[in-house]
Design a protein around this nucleic acid. Sequence first.
RNA 1: GCGCCUGUAGCUCAGCCGGAUAGAGCAUCGGCCUUCUAAGCCGAGGGUCGCAGGUUCGAGUCCUGCCAGGCGCGCCA
Length: 674
Amino acid sequence: MLDSLSSALKARIADATEATFGVRIDDPVIDVPRDLAHADLACPVAFELAKRIKTATGAKRAPRDLAATLVEWLQAPGRLPSGVNRLEVAGAGYVNVFLDRASILKTLIAGNSAARSAGTGKVIVEHTSVNPNKAAHIGHLRNAVLGDSIVQILRATGHRVEIQNYIDNTGVQVADVVVGFLHLEPHTLDEIKAIPDPFDYFCWDLYSRVGLWYRDGNADGRENPEKLAHRAEAQHAIESGHGPIAEMAEYVAMRNLEALLRTMYRLGIVYDVMPRESEVLQSNFWADAFEMLKAAGAIHYETEGKHAGCWVMRAEETESDGGDDDFAADKILVKSNGLVTYAGKDIAYHLWKLNRIPRDFSYRRFFEYPDGHVAWITTPDGHEAEAEHDSFGHGDRYVNVIDSGQSYVQDFVKKGVMSVANDPKVADSTHMDYEKVGLTVSACDDLGLPLSDEERKRSFIGMSGRKGRGVKADDLLAMLERNALAEVRSRVEKMNYPEDEQHAIAHKIAVGAVRYFLLKFSRNSVIAFDLKDALSFQGEAGPYVQYSAVRLNSIFAKLRDDSIEVEDPLGRTGDERISELLAGEENADFWPVVYLCAQLPETLSRAAAALEPAIVARYAFQTAQLTNEFYHRHQVRNEANPDRQALMIAIIGLVQRTLVESLAALGIEVPERM
RNA sequence: GCGCCUGUAGCUCAGCCGGAUAGAGCAUCGGCCUUCUAAGCCGAGGGUCGCAGGUUCGAGUCCUGCCAGGCGCGCCA
């Protein structure tokens, strides 16, 4: 509602500049001032106007005088948009705007969540995409949490979303674990099947041992070519899709995937469909994509130079490409031996996402969530499931949550896709890149991970699956749940929680803590994971925000005990009375809370446009801060003045809803009590 | 060599299209629980916004150069 109000206001101000000075300033800047005591909105248009007048006529005019003229024009009857109360000139020439606070409050409480702009088409969000060969660590968690949160934010802003998790079941990483099972610690398939859970933990260790084994036991040593031959052998066998090695790989990958889905579900993260690399390879998607790319002139066959015999996509021409023998900017899509590279496969996959390839996968049910939702997976044969699944793919645009290390390749993927599917909707597709999660030195010490002296000097330590260095997602969650449970139990006397509720609360708190921790940093910030910070429930943390909402819950519980009307608190209070109360000195801190709540829709839109959940995280925290302040300063239950009490109830109702909605956009639930 | 990202309080980070006195959390120090949950609230100290120029009525924000750090540039995925 505020955005429509401010765009109406902008239009009137533009009219004003034209009517009074004959200079139309379209889309003037309107800010929310730092100090709401000054105004609700501030517009520095007079400064811009002074400049324009000066360049046009040479006349130097004082911005303050210009502002006064604009205000005079705007305040003539019928010119201000509804919701705006009055204007004022301030400072060196600001036009300050005061809103009709009572009517805004009433509109907000009525809560007709303004027509969510539907019909923007279907967005395919790809996230997680963890190699299915070991347990997930917190770096994978950042990906999944960012992805899942952007899904919630897109949905909250009216988009249709499909969640895809790409499974690289034929890559080197799976092959390495298979090598471990074949050569390092020989297991038959039946023996592998007999390995007890957590299987993904077993593979985590095995994978890092294989990494060491390739290097003959020296982590910084050279890879032993004889041992590497086993990797190549396994890869070939896996790619062929037949035989005992392929069968073993299939089992290992799918069991790890299942573990991954369970881990992610603990955080409330679910998927719609999981295309596997094996099917992308086998289903001739590339053959189609290849023809399209050739027809579009996007790729070239090199007959000479270092890429002779390859099909490449050329990088942008640079003025001078002299002397960079070591670095070739062009991207190879088809190798000289005829095999397709990752970039090529990814282009084909993305053309399928956008319905540009006239083929589809076969699917089967892979994982059923407790609420009945099903995560589907692709299958090699078309007979297994003639399914009651949704129509997958058919997206209008895609969002790929992939770490920023892959920007280079992702740029080529986008370029390739655009060469075939040149459509403004597709053009909005993007690589939602983010920086890595590293470990602080102190976190490594806490976790007992050994570091070299060299590494100790660094500001953070990169995680490494190959070295088995990282914090497993399940371990982190377990630590958080343990801490949260202790915290809950410390209140058991006062709150009288039954045992099962204690666990349910602790779980929600733990999830709130991890998710918030991973979302509060903007995407391009490297997170140096510090155990103490991540485990904190205080300050700028998920549980702080949850707690602020829970405190409001508890006010409502008490009010109901007292049989005080909470459903329609302002039902019998007139607008004038509300305005009067909001304007009162003793209620000066009511309006900032209400006004912040009014900014939720724009905040979500901004986050959706920027693909930046941190914007919502910060907003939720800010709202929680004001909530706790309000809670501390005002006793709703003991308020003697019925009008004032009604107003306070209305406000905390609005705030409570705002907290719940903003946290929901981050995938965080608010427990009834905690 | 080329490209991208980052540099703001002791630490970790916000700061949206350039706008009024640069903010938060943590840490430190000092207050506040017989009153709706102290996972909280209030207060104090702490800043050459990497450096130097430029654009502008106005620059943490835009431009140029430099310095420092990270990442990427493979017939790997």
